[in-house]
């Protein structure tokens, strides 16, 4: 399963790679990383229909996670990837907006990796 992680913090890459070390080695998950919303869209355009799941931060400089979600839902209506939003602001306004725009799930930081792993495995 190919997962695209979108976050402006570059350390997210090494964190995910270490947290899901076993799964990556077992080829259960394949992670790709984009460090901005724009980068994520470019990646999706370059690798059409490959990405199954997108994990995106909401608060990012430039294109926000919410805007990214909007363009994904607009540009890929045929093979919609699952989108999980992650944010430090766990208020209901953010949550409702994300869910309305078609997010599949909503996580708050700090991310509970055990819970995330379970969710990902379930999607698989």
């Amino acid at each position: 399963m190919k997962i695209l992680v979108v976050d402006d913090e570059e350390d997210v890459k090494s964190l995910f790679e270490q947290k899901f070390r076993k799964e990556i080695r077992n080829a259960q998950f394949e992670f790709s990383f984009a460090f901005s919303g724009e980068e994520a869209l470019t990646y999706l355009a370059d690798h059409p229909s490959e990405v199954v799941m997108i994990l995106s931060d909401i608060n990012m400089p430039g294109m926000s996670g919410i805007e990214l979600l909007k363009s994904i839902r607009k540009d890929y209506p045929a093979a919609p990837p699952q989108v999980m939003m992650i944010t430090a602001y766990g208020d209901s306004q953010n949550h409702n907006q994300a869910m309305q725009l078609g997010a599949d799930d909503f996580l708050t930081k700090p991310v509970n990796f055990i819970e995330l792993k379970e969710k990902l495995l379930k999607t698989l």
Partner: peptide, 16 residues
């Protein structure tokens, strides 16, 4: 808010 993000990294990396 500003502290939470770096703090999350500290916690996550130390756990891992």
């Amino acid at each position: 808010h500003e502290i939470q993000n770096p703090l999350n990294f500290v916690n996550n990396f130390s756990e891992v």
